[in-house]
């Protein structure tokens, strides 16, 4: 079995986009690609935790950001992580303009649908990476 790919969401807590990034991550890590993927705390990485820094340097990572500020992607790049792909919830919203998530703590129907779309995209990317394909 190959090393897990780390899926790292942005940790956003103020908007529904952050919740979607996190829920989609859990959906991949615990259901869709369980065993092939894992996650870790972005805050721990940004705080300089040595073990977390080591893990992102030695394993492939996918950043999942809620908003254009791209905290996950930028901090992974800053940590010299093996960043192999990144997704943004706001890009997904452009593809599904009718879905307007509102609730933050517990996602509403629109938020859950977006989560499913995002999780499927991440899972496909994991498959690509595990097959050795690199195109985004």
């Amino acid at each position: 079995m190959t090393d897990p790919i780390f899926i790292i969401p942005c940790s956003g807590i103020g908007k529904a986009y952050g919740t979607i990034s996190r829920e989609a991550t859990y959906c991949v890590v615990e259901d869709l690609r369980k065993g092939e993927t894992d996650t870790l705390c972005l805050s721990l990485l940004v705080s300089g935790d040595e073990e977390t820094q080591r893990l992102v340097k030695s394993h492939r990572c996918i950043a999942i950001d809620g908003c254009p500020l791209e905290c996950a992607k930028k901090n992974l790049e800053f940590s010299c992580a093996k960043l192999t792909a990144n997704f943004r919830v706001i890009d997904l919203l452009k593809e599904h303009r009718k879905l307007k998530p509102k609730s933050i703590t517990f996602l509403d129907k629109a938020g859950r649908e977006l989560t499913k779309f995002l999780a499927d995209k991440i899972a496909l990317k994991v498959d690509e990476l595990n097959r050795g394909e690199t195109a985004s």
Binding site: C10, S11, G12, I13, G14, S43, L69, C71, K74
Partner: peptide
């Protein structure tokens, strides 16, 4: 109010 910790740290 709340703030995103990674954003703060960045």
């Amino acid at each position: 109010v709340t703030i995103c910790l990674p954003l703060f740290l960045t």
